Amino acid sequence: MAQSFAHGNYSHTQKNVRNGGGRTPRDRARRTLSQNFLVDPHAVGRLVKAARPSGLVLEPGSGEGVLTRALAPEVEQIIGYEIDPLLAGKLAARTRGDTRISVVRGDFTAARPPREPFAVVGNIPYSITSRIVDWCLAAPALTSATLLTQLEYARKRSGDFGRWSLVTVESWPWFSWELLGQVGRESFRPVPSVDSGILRIERRETPLLPPAAMAGFRAFAELGFGGVGGSLSASLRQRYAKDAVADAFRAAGLDGSTVVAFVHPDQWVTLYDRLG
C-alpha cells in the first residue's frame, strides 16, 4: 500500500532510523518539527470534504503542499503557514503562479488572526496540537477548524470515549466538537506510531450562552473540574449552597454522585443557568 502513494515509499528511511543509522539533517528536522506528511489522496479528499472550505482558509503546517493544492480550487484564498524554511521555499516556488495560494514562512500560532471570517484546515503537528486549538478558539472571526490530530486527542475532545474534557466543556456554549472519521497511520510519511482523527470544531451560529457569560462559564467549569470530593457536586458546593446544587442537578438530569468527566456539556450549560 505504501508504494502506491505519489510521494514514494519511505519505509527504508524509517528502518535506518530505527537501526540508528541514516539520520540525515532532514530526518532530524522532521522529528523536531513533528512532520508526518499526508500522502494518501483518498485521505486528503476526506479531509477537504469534512472541512467544507470556502472563502478564506488558513492552513497550519503546509509541509509539501498536498493539502494546500487540494484546498485551493474550493476557496477564494488559502494562506499556508510553514515553519520549515526549506519546505516553505519549495511550496512558494511551486505555487507562485496560483493567486489563490500564499505561503508564509513562520509559526502559525504566532500569527495574528484575520479580522474577516476565516476557517482553519490542516494536518497539524501532533506536538503542538493544544497550542493550535487554543489559537483557533481565541480567534474572534474563526468559523471552523478542521484538523487532523492524534486519534486519541480527537476522541477525547469530541466525547467519543463517553467522557468530556475541560477544554471541550468550557468552549461548548460557543463551539461544537465532532469526530468526523479516522485516518490510518499508513496514510502518512514518515509513518507515525498512531492513527489520526478528523476533528472539526465549529462556531455555533446561535450560542448556547451569550458572549458576556464566557468568562463566568469558564470559571464555573474550572471549579467543577477541580476534583474536590471526587464528584462534580462536591466541587460546586465549595461556592454554591448544597440545596441550590441539588436543584441544579435535578434540572440537568444528573445524580449527585456523577463523576465530572461523565457530565455532558449540555448539562453543564443547564447547571450554569441554574447556579451561575
Results as ranks from 00 to 15, higher is better:
41 P>M: 08
42 H>F: 10
43 A>M: 10
44 V>G: 01
47 L>G: 12
48 V>L: 10
49 K>E: 15
52 R>E: 15
52 R>F: 00
53 P>S: 05
53 P>R: 09
57 V>E: 02
58 L>R: 09
59 E>W: 09
60 P>F: 03
62 S>F: 06
65 G>R: 04
67 L>S: 03
67 L>N: 02
68 T>P: 03
71 L>P: 03
72 A>T: 00
72 A>P: 02
74 E>S: 09
74 E>M: 07
75 V>T: 03
78 I>A: 04
79 I>Q: 01
79 I>A: 03
80 G>D: 02
84 D>H: 11
85 P>A: 13
87 L>H: 10
89 G>N: 12
90 K>G: 15
91 L>S: 11
91 L>A: 11
93 A>Q: 15
94 R>N: 13
94 R>M: 14
94 R>P: 00
97 G>S: 14
99 T>E: 10
100 R>V: 01
103 V>C: 07
103 V>P: 07
107 D>F: 01
108 F>G: 06
108 F>Y: 11
109 T>D: 02
110 A>F: 00
110 A>Q: 13
111 A>C: 06
111 A>G: 01
112 R>V: 15
113 P>N: 05
115 R>H: 08
115 R>E: 14
117 P>L: 02
119 A>I: 00
120 V>N: 06
120 V>E: 03
121 V>W: 07
122 G>K: 10
122 G>T: 11
125 P>R: 07
126 Y>R: 03
127 S>I: 01
128 I>Q: 01
128 I>L: 01
129 T>V: 04
131 R>I: 00
132 I>T: 04
132 I>H: 04
132 I>Y: 04
133 V>Q: 08
134 D>H: 13
135 W>Y: 14
135 W>A: 08
135 W>D: 10
136 C>M: 06
140 P>G: 09
141 A>P: 00
142 L>Y: 08
144 S>P: 00
145 A>V: 12
145 A>H: 11
149 T>P: 02
149 T>K: 02
149 T>C: 10
149 T>Q: 00
152 E>G: 03
156 K>W: 07
158 S>H: 13
159 G>T: 14
162 G>T: 11
163 R>Y: 14
163 R>F: 13
165 S>L: 09
166 L>M: 15
171 S>L: 05
172 W>I: 12
172 W>Q: 02
172 W>R: 04
174 W>D: 05
